[in-house]
Design a protein around this nucleic acid. Structure first.
Length: 568
DNA sequence: AATACAAGCGCG
DNA sequence: AAAGCGCGCTTGTATT
């Protein structure tokens, strides 16, 4: 199987320029095409190299085209600029390629083909794009581990394709189910200037218990003062702190907060704005998190309350394949540290139970607290008490995160398995450290420096694990979309109503959140799609960790909706 | 009136 | 029950 050619895709004053190049960026052929001709001019077996997937791919999707792979230079630049695998990189100087993420617009339209629709900042002229590609290829070729970086850039770029496809396809969203949940919990839609009926009833009771019929419950300072007046001496109005006080007002107040949260964050207004048309189309931002995780923008895609998952509901004649990886991060840690004992504990479907079975700690809950403490840098409470047991049982795994923390505390740089490095600490961090080292420094200066160092250490400790887990997930997605593209297209009358989008004819990705995915699949393809999900997970594990004996078991189910209830 | 910030809470 | 990491969004308040 030969790799497809690289094709630089860039703009000129009234169209696109396509340049076929070799792996070093040397030009082999060039042609100009009108933007409207781009889908047919590109064809299927091509690997575009472009400045920014979010600027090009939505229009191709609109035209009914999908791509197998690409190279996103903006995302790749960010990786190579910071990667510790790249020596003295010419990419480190600040340039227009450092532009922040542009996002796929919420209003896909032919306007995306128009020249003035470009987000400002990211270079798009052919000379600049060619030059950047050549710089990046040279940086990879001259790096300490070209193989890993090529994998990472390919995965990151495939992720950019997935993000655009996810937005185009959307999550099938059942308005009726969502409204039924809201009505059941809140009692009905709130009128202007008031809360929903159940929240208002609670508010009345709470004000009685506070002895103040005018008490404001939505203003933290006012609520806190009212609580103090009845003897609840909390220092904040946060849920966990209120729960520690034994007073009749606490329970209804916590319930009130729960209801008003649902109402404001994912109530009827959210439904109208984001999912009214039967699809929720979050804007995904690949590479939006320093660790390499995706961020999102608009609609709160990363915060969909589990309570509302039943509203994710397949179209008639379609099914959802819902899959998530159990304890992805500790499994990744076992693999990257080569810790056979931890990998052994991870052998079954429940890593925490495996740790208990090895006699490291007594209960599953303790195992969970210990593992999270190990990866997050917990030092106090149960976490601080339990982590040492983990350090004895899994010295290699713990050495990896402990070393990452040590390097971070000293201001150094850490990297993920494939070579994404944490940005170096900012100048302000170094100033704090220097001030503490000054002979005139006082205790406060030194305390501030220690705190900043520890904060940095917890960040780098977690970075290596969270970032490598993100790489596994990207590899999973990238492999999966290739498998899905090989499924047959169903007959016209069986397709999902995705106007102008090539994805509606077969099983496609509909949602992604760090370690879980939802596929939307024609009924007759659901089993095949589910097997593709499993096979892709295995392929991702082999791609990253070769033959190292670690499992990444999936919790997978096929059902009409994404609610957990149908599972049991 | 517009903008910035902090608190609080949803997700992994 | 949070803790220890990473996010986005809404609300109320403070600032300009």
């Amino acid at each position: 199987m030969s790799a497809p050619p690289w094709t630089i895709v860039a703009r000129d004053d009234d169209g696109a320029v396509l340049v076929t190049v070799d792996g070093r960026g040397a030009e082999q052929a060039r042609r100009r095409v009108a933007l409207a001709e781009l889908p047919s001019a590109l064809g299927d077996d091509v690997r575009p190299v472009w400045n920014d997937t979010a600027q090009w791919y939505p229009a191709l999707l609109d035209a009914g085209m999908t791509l197998a792979r690409c190279r996103d230079l903006r995302l790749s630049h960010a990786i190579l600029r910071d990667s510790a695998l790249v020596d003295a990189p010419p990419l480190r100087a600040a340039t227009a390629w450092d532009a922040g993420p542009s996002t796929v617009s919420g209003a896909p339209s032919p306007a995306l083909f128009e020249l003035d629709e470009l987000a400002p900042g990211i270079p798009d002229r052919v000379d600049e794009v060619l030059a950047e590609f050549a710089r990046q290829q040279a940086a990879v070729d001259g790096s300490r581990d070209p193989g890993r970086l090529r994998l990472l850039l390919a995965a990151e770029s495939a992720g950019a394709l997935v993000a655009a496809e996810l937005h185009a396809a959307g999550v099938p969203w059942d308005r009726g189910v969502h409204e039924a949940i809201l009505t059941d919990v809140l009692g009905g839609r709130p009128g202007p200037g008031s809360h929903a009926p159940r929240a208002e009833e609670l508010a009345t009771r709470i004000r009685e218990l506070l002895g103040d019929p005018q008490a404001s419950l939505d203003s933290q300072p006012k609520l806190l003062r009212a609580l103090h007046r009845v003897g609840v001496l909390a220092s904040s109005t946060s849920r966990w702190e209120l729960a520690e006080h034994d007073h009749p007002v606490v329970a209804p107040l916590l319930e009130y907060k729960r209801l008003t949260r649902l109402e404001s964050a994912n109530g009827w207004n959210w439904l109208d704005e984001w999912a009214g048309g039967g699809r929720f189309r979050p804007v995904y931002v690949p590479g939006g998190v320093v660790t390499g995780r995706w961020a999102s923008s608009g609609g709160g895609a990363l915060q969909l309350p589990r309570q509302l998952r039943p509203a994710v509901r397949a179209d008639e004649g379609w099914l959802l394949v819902v899959a998530d990886v159990a304890q992805l991060e500790p499994r990744v840690l076992a693999a990257m540290s080569g810790d056979l004992a931890l990998a052994d504990a991870a052998r079954g479907t429940d890593l925490y139970q495996g740790i208990v079975a090895s006699g490291v700690v007594g209960t599953r809950q303790e195992a969970k607290i210990a593992v999270l403490g190990a990866m997050y840098g917990g030092t106090t409470g149960d976490s601080g008490r339990l982590v040492p047991a983990l350090r004895r049982a899994y010295p290699r795994a713990m050495a990896l995160v402990d070393e990452a923390a040590r390097v971070g505390e000293e201001g150094g740089v850490v990297s993920t398995w494939l070579g994404r490095s944490a940005p170096p600490p900012p100048a302000s961090w170094h100033r704090v450290q220097q001030r503490a080292a000054d002979p005139d420094a006082d205790d406060a200066d030194r305390a501030r420096a220690v705190r900043a160092a520890r904060d940095r250490g917890r960040f780098t400790r977690n970075f290596v694990v969270q970032g490598t887990a993100a790489e596994w997930a990207l590899a999973w997605l990238a492999d999966l979309r290739g498998r899905l593209a090989a499924l047959p297209v169903v007959p016209e009358d069986r397709r999902a109503p995705l106007s102008g989008v090539a994805l509606g004819g077969r099983a496609h990705l509909a949602f992604f959140l760090h370690d879980e995915i939802v596929l939307h699949a024609p009924e007759e393809q659901a089993e095949l799609a589910a097997q593709a999900v499993r096979d892709a997970a295995d392929a991702a594990t082999r791609l990253l960790f070769g033959t190292f004996p670690v499992d990444f078991p999936l919790d997978l189910r096929i059902s009409r909706d994404a609610g957990k209830a149908l599972l049991e």
